[in-house]
Design a protein around this nucleic acid. Structure first.
Length: 890
RNA sequence: GCGAAAGUGGCGGAAUUGGUAUACGCACUGGACUUAGAAUCCAGCGGAGUAAUCCAUGGGGGUUCAAGUCCCCCCUUUCGCACCA
């Protein structure tokens, strides 16, 4: 055996990376030219847009990035092997708080800090050998990017999709800015974990609620999304259908509007409850005592949404139930939310947990109006409820006294409800709603939990909002041709008080675009989730000259928005991307990222593409066709973090083992959707496997180098051991296709390849390479090449190198997905498990596709079976699963 | 509290359609090579038992010839929402 060159990952990885980056191997055209639009077989190549969530340039990449990008790269490289025309871009989500916080702390410039980080991370990403089209790199903090965002903002403003209002908003004292609802997690800031307080501020909003229905209903079409994420979005949008009902206030000329999803319980209402922040709250108060108590409730509601105990105050006012004329006391109650529905409810303690709790506390009547459907006693709920026999025959006895120990929450049959008694809840909901509409005391409405997206941030390092406030004209958007409104650089950071922009006279003072008079600029910047809401569309067009919207055919014709179709047409007349390119590449065929963005980024991006569609920029309804949400990388059971001191730096690992090893381990240790437990010893295992592959290729270098693989259907006259291995290879080829396209369980592909490599070593042990006949060499080269191609998406450098070592005119990435080639070897026997009464007792070898009685006889000849079954007459029956198993029942 | 997902050796995990549970990797144990170690290679590795066998996929029931897989109840963990009327 000749001396092998040892595996020098550093040189190998450098060699291939240089080739890829210098030759721009992974660059694609915005719209494929004729010469790439067909494959070698003359078939049309399909496009495939593979995207991973782009990183925030925080300084260095971390293991989460490595995992995310290894998954995406595996998919992108696989699709190229399969002949797709693959767009696989990368960029940096570079606006955000850390840059500004670093500026405050270290007296640096956020822009310089950010660009330096991008530079570092770009080097790191390139060292991982990811197959990106680097020509399409986006840096969102660059005005060449965010000027388009300002353009979108202006156009949204003109369509009233962006608006400003005074509102109670979430405030994070630590980040010193407001936050959108999606960015508050259990009352805490999503970024820093600080407690959120409530502030009343003028804020800019995007009218995402206009799209609530579409965002909800389109979820059904997203078959390529995990159910978990769809459910989270569904719950977040929180559609509920119900009845809005007007209650007259007795002795007052005013009405109170409430919202309920349970119109069927309207006869059980025993009080009304309104939010302390309800505009009518103070008007309804009748006593000084109630006023004082209410002030306290208002004070508490204003600072926090957190609630420990239900508290309320009787206002002294009464309302009239429009259905039965009953006089209902009106309470001010802290558990009623002002920003949902109408801020007022009818309380039905018998059939609502919260109303029940409140009624118990304040001794309010509890009146049951729904009973169990099946006429069974709800014994756990009702203590004294002797159901009148008459009820069985449909006759409902009124005025039964129900003593509930807990509310009855399910749907059922109405009782004590006048003409509606006897109806089911479902029927009654309809009937009562219709009646309310007929008599004009109410209307059916749909409410959403989703709120408009608050995008104002009182921070510097973000996209400036292109609005000025003119004394004469009010809020006025900039002229589109004056964009970009650049973020000024000559600012000082104190970390105290308002945004640095608010103190910068040169920025604040502006001319009104309408009247030319004195005006002041908006000093809030946009939420950085705005940049990530459309970056995937920007990628579809290479950077360069802006596209003229007017040159884009049919730009406004297929606009499915009901507004003026000229809305998207700006005087500026330009677009950040070519509409044809966007329509060609979008939607993203495979999106990969962390599940933490399930209701933030992923909801905003869905909203934004619909807005861009309605503005006429593209013709796409959804941004991401398939979504893969990968789990976290954890160590010692918890997420890697500086505070826990369990961070592993990818750079250290790459230097020690090489990028292929780090990538392989990331994909091997767990399926992508699960958390990945980091284990240094496991990394060594991955390294060992790569060395094994490299050694195997080196071992056969001289024997296979000159063997040229021809296209062939079958290998003849080959070594039987190799033929067996080829059979297993064929199974792996098939299985891998399924995994790479459907399930993404790369770990199972890798383990199959490990098994196969082990088998080749075993084969090698019993042979010397000189035994190789010419036909064996063909087959072996086919096997080795195929394994290299299958593993190439995961460990591209070493596979490229080994493919070259074994001798080929083309690189592995041009080789195409391996074909299944048969040999003369046919498996004509199989292993059959023999069970007695369902328990495994023996294994026998039988001819393939044997008849069941032959298998039975064969089984009964087996020593172990004989011991249990001495005679065939003992066999009561048996079940035979072809080529697999026989279960004999005695 | 509501909703969802998951629970398999010492560990990460396989078993994709109900059909031979524990593939592959890690760790561990023994052996070879070595002055020694590292690396590598070989062998072993769910538990109990001398063995035949028996017991094992969070626990308990069920369906089935056959259950990690399907159904019901319970426990635990993780995630999301948390008074949304």
């Amino acid at each position: 055996m000749e001396e092998e060159k040892s595996y020098d990952f550093y040189s190998i990885e450098k060699k291939w990376q240089n080739k890829w980056y210098n030759e721009k191997t992974y660059s694609v055209e915005d719209i494929p030219l004729d010469n790439v639009s067909v494959n070698v077989n003359g078939e049309n190549r399909q496009k495939f847009y593979c995207l991973e969530m782009f990183p925030y340039p925080s300084g260095r990449i971390h293991m989460g990035h490595v995992r995310n990008y290894s998954i995406g790269d595996a998919i992108a490289r696989y699709k190229r092997l399969k002949g797709y025309y693959v767009l696989h871009p990368i960029g940096f989500d570079s606006f955000g708080l850390p840059a500004e916080n670093a500026a405050i702390k270290n007296n640096t410039n956020p822009k310089e800090w950010t660009l330096k980080n991008i530079e570092t991370m770009e080097v790191q990403l390139k060292k991982l050998g990811l197959s990106y089209d680097w020509d399409r790199k986006i840096i969102t903090s660059d005005s060449s990017y965010y000027k388009w965002e300002q353009l979108f903002f202006i156009q949204m403003y003109k369509k009233e999709l962006a608006y400003k209002k005074l509102s109670r908003v979430n405030w994070c004292e630590s980040c010193h800015t407001t936050l959108a609802n999606e960015q508050v997690e259990s009352g805490k800031c999503w970024r820093c974990g600080s407690e959120i307080t409530i502030k009343n501020m003028e804020q800019w909003f995007f009218k995402i609620t206009d799209y609530a229905e579409e965002l909800l209903s389109e979820l059904d079409n997203l078959s390529g999304w995990p159910d978990k994420v769809k459910l989270m979005q569904k719950n977040w949008i929180g559609k509920s259908e119900g009845l809005s009902l007007f209650f007259k206030i007795s002795a007052e000329p005013i009405q109170l509007e409430i919202f309920t999803t349970r119109p069927d319980t309207v006869f059980g209402a025993t009080y009304l409850a309104i939010s302390p922040l309800h505009p009518l709250a103070k008007d309804l108060l009748k006593t000084e005592d109630a006023r004082i108590k209410t002030e306290e409730l208002i004070r508490k509601s204003l600072i926090s949404k957190e609630l420990n105990e239900k508290e309320g105050v009787f206002t002294g006012s009464f309302a009239i139930n429009p259905f039965n004329g009953q006089k209902l006391p009106i309470y001010i109650a802290n558990f009623v939310l002002m920003d949902y529905g109408t801020g007022a409810i009818m309380s039905v303690p018998a059939h609502d947990e919260r109303d029940f709790e409140f009624a118990k506390k304040y001794n309010i009547e509890i009146k049951q109006v729904i009973k169990n459907k099946n006429n069974e006693k709800t014994s756990s709920n009702i203590e004294k409820n002797e159901i009148n026999k008459n009820e069985m025959n449909g006759g409902i006895k009124e005025d039964e006294i129900q003593e509930l120990t807990s509310p009855f929450l399910e749907d059922g049959i109405l009782i004590n409800s006048s003409i509606f008694s006897g109806l089911t809840s479902e029927e009654a909901k309809k009937a009562i709603s219709l009646e309310a509409e007929k008599t004009g005391i109410g209307k059916r409405v749909i409410n959403y939990r989703l709120k408009d997206w608050g995008i104002s941030r009182q921070r510097y390092w973000g996209c400036p909002i292109p609005i000025v406030y003119c004394e004469k004209c009010g809020a006025v958007p900039l002229n589109e041709e004056d964009l970009p409104l650049e973020l000024p650089e000559n600012v000082t950071f104190t970390g105290k008080g308002e945004s640095p922009l608010a103190k910068l006279e040169s920025f604040i003072n502006a001319r009104c675009p309408v009247c030319g008079g004195q005006a002041k600029r908006e000093t809030d910047t946009m939420d950085t989730f705005v940049e990530s809401s459309w970056y995937y569309a920007k990628y579809t067009t290479k950077p360069g000259l802006p596209f003229n919207l007017d040159n884009n055919a049919n730009l406004h014709s297929s606009n499915n928005c009901d507004c003026n179709s000229d809305a998207g047409k700006s005087s500026f007349g330009q677009s950040p991307f070519d509409k044809k390119a966007a329509d060609y590449w979008l939607p993203v065929d495979q999106y990969v990222g962390g599940v933490e963005h399930a209701v933030m980024h992923l909801l905003y991006a869905r909203f934004f593409i619909k807005v861009l569609r309605d503005l006429g920029y593209l013709n796409v309804n959804e941004p991401f066709k398939n979504l893969l949400t990968q789990g976290m990388v954890v160590k010692d059971g918890s997420k890697m973090s500086k505070s826990k001191g369990n961070v592993v730096d990818p750079d250290d690992l790459i230097n020690k083992y090489g990028a292929d090893t780090v990538r392989l381990f990331s994909l091997f240790a767990a399926p992508p959707e699960k958390d990945l437990e980091w284990n240094e010893k496991g990394v060594e295992g991955a390294y060992r496997f790569i060395v094994k592959i490299y050694k195997l290729s080196s071992l056969y270098k001289h024997h296979l180098n000159n063997v040229t693989i021809k296209k062939q259907k079958k290998f003849e006259d080959t070594n039987i051991e190799l033929e067996k291995i080829n059979n297993e290879l064929n199974a792996i080829i098939k299985k891998s296709e399924n995994e790479m396209e459907e399930r993404f369980h790369f770990n199972t592909i890798i383990s199959s390849c490990m098994e196969l490599v082990n088998k080749i070593y075993e084969y090698d042990k019993n042979k010397t390479q000189n035994d190789l006949t010419i036909s064996d060499a063909y087959l072996l080269k086919h096997i080795l090449n195929s394994i290299l191609i299958i593993l190439y998406p995961f460990i591209p450098h070493v596979c490229s190198e080994c493919f070259e070592i074994l001798g080929s005119d083309i690189t592995v990435e041009c080789a195409g997905w391996p074909e299944i080639i048969e040999t003369g070897y046919k498996i004509d026997t199989c292993n059959i498990a023999v069970q007695i009464n369902g328990k495994l007792r023996a294994q026998i070898t039988a001819n393939l596709d044997s008849e069941q009685h032959d298998i039975l006889n064969l089984s009964l000849e087996n020593e172990k079976i004989k011991k249990n079954i001495s005679d065939i007459s003992l066999v009561k029956k048996y079940i035979y699963v072809k080529n697999k198993l026989i279960n004999i029942i005695i």
